[in-house]
Design a protein around this nucleic acid. Sequence first.
DNA 1: GACTGATCATTG
DNA 2: CAATGATCAGTC
Length: 221
Amino acid sequence: MQPPQSESELMQRAADLAGFTLGEISHEHGIACPADLSREKGWVGMLLETCLGATAGSKPEQDFAHLGIELKTIPVNAHGKPLETTFVCVAPLTGISGVQWEHSHVRHKLSRVLWVPVEGERTIPLAERRIGTPLLWSPSREEDAQLRADWEELMDLIALGRVNDITARHGQYLQLRPKAANSHALTDAFGAKGEPIKTLPRGFYLRTQFTHHILSRFFVS
DNA sequence: GACTGATCATTG
DNA sequence: CAATGATCAGTC
């Protein structure tokens, strides 16, 4: 699948997927559908990238850089409520002095997002889960301010060398949690006295309350 | 039932 | 190891 040339082409492709099951879509593309996601947690996201023509790979940029759009699949229940938090990006633990919200990776990633809801209840076999109506979102002024407040709180703690004091309980809408292969993975950071330390890699995640708010903005009921 | 900390696959 | 794609699963 070639990358979409325009925003409208991307939206049309995404809209055309709505209502189909993951089994139908993966079959069309000759991709095997696993029984569950326990060993392939990113399978749905990768499938949608393929279907929509996103540039594959592990580049730290938006999925559709030429359109300035990031693709996010989000698991929802029958009522459209998110079942999981949404990973945004890894958190920088070194070299962060002087970094401001306006230039952060979080803000850049979330500046324009194509959300694709997908049924995610584990009682539904993966192949039978349906793709929902896509929505193209940009943060409102209020949403931007909410994310900024959490981001600044978390980044301040990191800058103070207190990364090991941060738990998933910090941040009202944006939280910081481990983002690693396992609990033994270590990366560089700084301690409270400025000394170099090794710690778990972290990532920024959007709480379900926040993403639920986004989805409900589009599906007024 | 919600939430946090842990984890899985794959590619450079 | 770090980045991409996220969900799992035990505990509260």
